[in-house]
Amino acid sequence: MSKRENYVNDELFQPAQIDSHKSEKIAGPGLSFWQDAWIRLRKNKSAIVGCIILLVLTILAVFGPYMNEYSFSEQKLTRANLPAKVPVIEKLGIMDGTDDMGNDMYEMKGLEEGTYFWFGTDGLGRDLWTRVWQGTRISLYIALLAAAIDMVIGVAYGGISAYYGGRVDNVLQRIVEILVGIPNLVVVILMILVLDPGIISITVALTITGWIGMSRIVRGQILKLKGQEFVLASRTLGSSDNKIITKHLIPNVMGVIIINTMFTIPAAIFFEAFLSFIGLGLQPPIASLGTLIEEGYRNMQIFPHMMIYPSIIISLIMIAFNVVADGLRDALDPKMRE
């Protein structure tokens, strides 16, 4: 008792005026889901690094081919198979145009002083720097394409299937089952029978099968959401189907859509590279990272530079997309919210 009396005096036993509604006050700023997700994403260092890598790669893919005077298809056998040589860095003993014996290849080929191929040249004397960025463009095009297909066809297909349900759902899901049964590779080979191998046949192949995963995920989400009480509440208020879809369903599946898109992108990029590598993809002289790696792989032991640079770039792209996708999932996944 004595301890208490030290700090508690009689005066304190007066009724306090406490507004009970004060306990209902909410501290802190009101954050929307997206603002909240953005804060979370910003805290994720690896995701931010991934974003920066993707940004840099995109800029290089756009401007890289114009940064020197060589074109991606210009052949000159006198400068074939040159290793990389970059100003300034050459003084460090790497990328100085020498082969593993230490011979300066540029001198041996009799090229004039001040000639630099930043990533070296290939067997036909084409500048690899230009070709690598040209190939990155293809990869990024595939990335955009895959994302677009996912977003447009996948989301619409899954959404319609789930929202209207019943017969519609039944028919649409049977079609999906048939499409899933056909391996991608078979579709591509069939495409090549009709069209020439190249970017168009890859595009068509992706369009036919690339959206199925997304459509299934969206269908599952919408099926779950459309029975939720807030959707029922909106229906009892008299909302039209359009309003329910745009105001209640789409905003709530957006997170899942974004996450899933980010994970399909690297898969699509790899799919293209793989096709090009086995010769079903792009045809020369067009370069893609897949074809570059394939060419480099044939001379891997003699001229390792031909394979190293495109391999590093494609690895960077894949890692960056995966890391960003991971970060987005952590940021958008509602289970992480307390």
Partner: peptide, 11 residues
């Protein structure tokens, strides 16, 4: 204290 009808200053 915040919800108590008999809250005093000490609370």
């Amino acid at each position: 204290a915040a919800r108590c009808p008999h809250a005093m200053k000490v609370c």
